[in-house]
Deep mutational scan, measured.
Amino acid sequence: VSSEIYQWVRDELKRAGISQAVFARVAFNRTQGLLSEILRKEEDPKTASQSLLVNLRAMQNFLQLPEAERDRIYQ
């Protein structure tokens, strides 16, 4: 997982004009609270716990989908 993931998520929230709650639900089936905590802490993926890595990997995989497909999912 790239250490850029945190910025990618922030950029996607702005680009798509969606809330953290929507992104958390569709990208990795978690709550806004968890996403907020992940973004606030910005732990280095190289030293992250296994559970954090699973979530970061799910977010990264979601962000690799084509933009149009992500936008459809947000609706």
Rank of each mutant, 00 (worst) to 15 (best):
S51N: 14
S19R: 05
E67Q: 08
K46N: 12
L34A: 11
T31E: 09
L65K: 15
D44E: 06
S36T: 12
D71K: 05
Q7N: 15
L52H: 10
E37V: 02
A27I: 07
K46L: 12
R25T: 10
T31S: 12
F62T: 03
L13T: 03
V54Y: 11
Q50W: 07
G17L: 06
V26Y: 06
A58P: 04
F28G: 10
R40T: 14
N29E: 09
Q64E: 14
E67T: 14
R57V: 13
Y6M: 04
A27C: 07
R70E: 01
S36K: 12
V54Q: 13
R70P: 01
L13W: 00
E4L: 11
E43A: 09
L39K: 02
G33H: 13
E43I: 13
G17S: 15
R25F: 06
S3A: 09
A24E: 14
A48S: 08
A21M: 12
D71M: 04
D11L: 13
S51K: 11
V54M: 14
V54L: 11
E42G: 09
E12D: 08
V54G: 12
K41V: 07
V26E: 03
S19E: 06
G17M: 11
A16M: 04
D11I: 13
E42N: 10
I5C: 05
D11W: 10
A27N: 00
Q7K: 15
S3I: 11
E12N: 00
V1D: 03
L65M: 12
R70A: 04
R30T: 15
L34H: 15
N29D: 09
M59L: 09
V9I: 15
T47M: 13
D44W: 00
N29I: 06
Q64M: 13
I5P: 01
L65F: 06
E4H: 11
A68D: 15
L39Q: 02
Q75Y: 14
A58W: 04
T47I: 10
Q32R: 11
A21V: 07
E67C: 11
R30G: 14
P45E: 02
E12T: 03
R72D: 12
E67P: 11
E69P: 01
N61R: 11
E37D: 15
A48H: 01
N61S: 10
D44V: 06
R25S: 13
A21E: 14
P66E: 08
E12I: 05
E42M: 09
A68V: 14
V9K: 01
P45K: 00
F23K: 03
Q60Y: 10
N61G: 09
I73T: 09
S51C: 10
A16D: 03
A48R: 02
A21L: 09
L52S: 09
L63P: 04
Q20C: 05
L52A: 08
R10H: 14
D11G: 07
E67H: 08
A16T: 11
K14Q: 14
F28V: 04
E67R: 10
S51E: 13
R57D: 09
D71W: 01
V1G: 01
A58G: 05
A16E: 02
K41A: 11
L56D: 00
L63A: 05
L35T: 04
E37K: 09
P66M: 02
N29S: 09
V1P: 02
P45M: 03
S51H: 09
R70N: 04
S51Q: 11
R10W: 15
I18V: 12
E67S: 10
V54E: 15
Q64Y: 12
R70H: 00
D11S: 13
L52Q: 08
D11N: 15
G33T: 11
K46Q: 12
F62P: 02
N55T: 08
Q7W: 13
S19D: 15
N61A: 13
R40F: 10
K46V: 12
V54W: 08
G33D: 11
E4M: 15
L56F: 01
D71T: 05
Y6Q: 00
P66D: 07
L39A: 02
S19Q: 05
Y6C: 01
E37F: 02
K14Y: 13
T47L: 12
A27W: 04
Q60L: 06
A27M: 06
L65N: 04
P45H: 00
Y74Q: 01
S36G: 10
S49C: 15
W8N: 15
Q32M: 07
I38F: 03
S36L: 07
Q50F: 10
S2C: 11
D44T: 07
G17I: 03
A48V: 07
I38H: 00
S2R: 08
S3M: 12
R72G: 12
E42K: 09
A48W: 01
P66C: 04
I18E: 00
R57Y: 10
G17C: 15
L52D: 08
L35I: 06
N55A: 07
R70F: 00
L53A: 08
Q32K: 11
L52G: 05
S19I: 03
R30E: 15
S51D: 13
L52E: 09
S36E: 14
V26N: 01
R72W: 09
L53G: 05
V26Q: 03
P45I: 10
L63G: 01
L13V: 15
I38M: 10
L39I: 05
L63S: 06
Y74E: 05
R30Y: 05
F23I: 02
K41R: 11
L53Y: 08
L39T: 02
L13P: 00
A58H: 12
L35D: 03
A21C: 06
K46E: 14
L39R: 02
E43F: 04
R57H: 10
M59Y: 03
L63H: 04
F23N: 02
K46D: 08
S49L: 04
Y6R: 03
E69N: 09
N29C: 07
K41I: 10
R30V: 04
R30N: 14
Q32H: 13
Q75S: 14
R40D: 15
N55E: 07
S2M: 15
I38T: 04
L53H: 07
T31P: 07
E4R: 10
Q75H: 14
S2N: 15
V1F: 04
L34I: 15
V26H: 07
I38Y: 11
K41P: 03
Q75N: 13
A24M: 04
K41N: 12
N29V: 04
I5F: 01
Y6G: 01
V26I: 07
L53K: 07
S36C: 09
E37P: 03
V22D: 11
E69K: 12
A48K: 04
V22H: 07
P45W: 02
